[in-house]
Amino acid sequence: MAATPSVSVQAEAFDTGAEVAALAAGRTDIGAVVSFTGLVRDLTGDLEAMTLEHYPGMTERELTAIAEDACKRWPLDGVRVIHRHGRLTPGDPIVLVVTASAHRRAAFEAADFLMDYLKTRAPFWKKESHRNTAGGWVEAKAEDDTDAARWEKGKKVQK
């Protein structure tokens, strides 16, 4: 039976462990749960904060569409997506993707796909403020488009 994805867009932090446990709670047919947690990263020591703007309404709609697409491509028993908005600081969790399936390959691949599609389709924009240098809007990366394009060729990732 196809999973019904659960999607949240929120300012609040999330608990990865609790979300993973909730997805498999009361089930005995799930053999694999994969979770990806994205954190606010500071590679230069200069990042003061990251503020995420989004498009209320479209964001939820787009995340749901991406999650439903994943459910069509892989035999999933559960999908949970949480994306935060507002002001975040280095080390803060920013995005969570959890997938559950009878088999690990489907769960791994679907989580990878969800992140690739989310990064190129979900209407979020990051603005950085730095301590010592000028901040500004984060530019989209071409590699995010090539990552997402991997899933256009076929339904499964090639080895």
Binding site: G38, Y55, G57, W125
Partner: peptide, 26 residues
């Protein structure tokens, strides 16, 4: 109306049209 489209998409019948830079979430 909250769905990605190209610049050649029609305007007529739309409730809302949004313009934004390439997205950078995740």
């Amino acid at each position: 109306d909250q769905v990605h489209v190209d610049f050649d998409a029609p305007v007529e019948g739309a409730r809302e049209i949004a313009f934004f830079p390439p997205v950078t979430g995740g």
